[in-house]
Amino acid sequence: MRESTIMKIHYGTALAAVALVAVHILMRLTQGFAESLEYESVLANYKFIPYAIMLELILILLSVHGFNGLRVILLELKQGRLYEKAVSYGCLAAMIALIAYGSRTIIMTNMGMV
């Protein structure tokens, strides 16, 4: 992929995350902040589909943004053909793994499997 395409995604995910994280914080503030992380309320949140979709989107946006950022940092830290290949594919794999694990939690809870 072209670097400019990657960076458009990087800036785009950052902007979208600002919007969605703002909604996320507003939800928490209006739905009783202190109880946010209580077991029942976490389960309820994941079962409320529109909110679960938004959490999933934040997970994807920030995983893409964060691991691409990590890739950038590592590319600037050290250079070399093999190293750079490992960094690029490693970050992509880690990104997919994190999204998969997070999605698994959201989907399983949503479907009442826990």
Binding site: E3, S4, I6, L75, E76, Q79
Partner: peptide, 9 residues
């Protein structure tokens, strides 16, 4: 310049 060590760094 649109390279992994180009302008975006």
């Amino acid at each position: 310049i649109d390279d992994s060590h180009g302008i975006w760094r």
